[in-house]
């Protein structure tokens, strides 16, 4: 890598970027990177939910009936789907707000995760209490 990274024009935006991020000015690169890390944290949350859903279906056959097992697994997988897909739009909206220097939008996926997680936990609590000893 012979190029001098301390001078010269900033990297060019590719066509996809130009299309979905119109207008405004490029924000501080530190903020762009922070937004990217936050996005990745959401993606890992989604992957954890995905693995959790699979684990419920794969490892809890002796403990849960087929209907309950399926319900919890699908709930977790749907949550993973919504969080995973939503994290991209969250990232995009934050990037857009930073470009136009407007206040950052609130994360809609945060209450979704909270309510979804609480729902799954509540189902498990009811199951544990109702289960014959």
């Amino acid at each position: 890598m012979a190029e001098d990274s301390n001078s010269g024009e900033p990297d060019a935006r590719n066509r996809f970027t130009s299309r979905i991020l119109r207008g405004g000015t490029e924000p501080d690169p530190r903020f762009t990177l922070a937004n990217e890390r936050t996005f990745l944290a959401w993606i890992r949350t989604s992957l954890a939910l995905l693995a959790g859903g699979v684990a419920v279906e794969a490892f809890m056959a002796d403990l849960l009936g087929p209907e309950l097992r399926k319900t919890i697994a699908v709930l977790l997988l749907v949550l993973a789907l919504v969080i995973g897909g939503g994290s991209f739009f969250r990232w995009l909206n934050v990037e857009r707000a930073m470009r136009s220097k407007t206040p950052l939008p609130l994360p809609l996926i945060a209450p979704v995760l909270a309510i979804g997680g609480a729902l799954v936990a509540a189902i498990m609590v009811v199951f544990v209490i109702a289960r014959p000893a």
Partner: peptide, 25 residues
């Protein structure tokens, strides 16, 4: 990006990762 005080965001990488997770789900 840090050295030049501006960097284009990684739109394709983020979109690709989010799409992978959605497809897997």
């Amino acid at each position: 990006g840090i050295n030049q005080e501006a960097m284009p965001p990684n739109t394709r990488a983020t979109a690709a990762v989010a799409a992978s997770v959605v497809i897997l789900a």
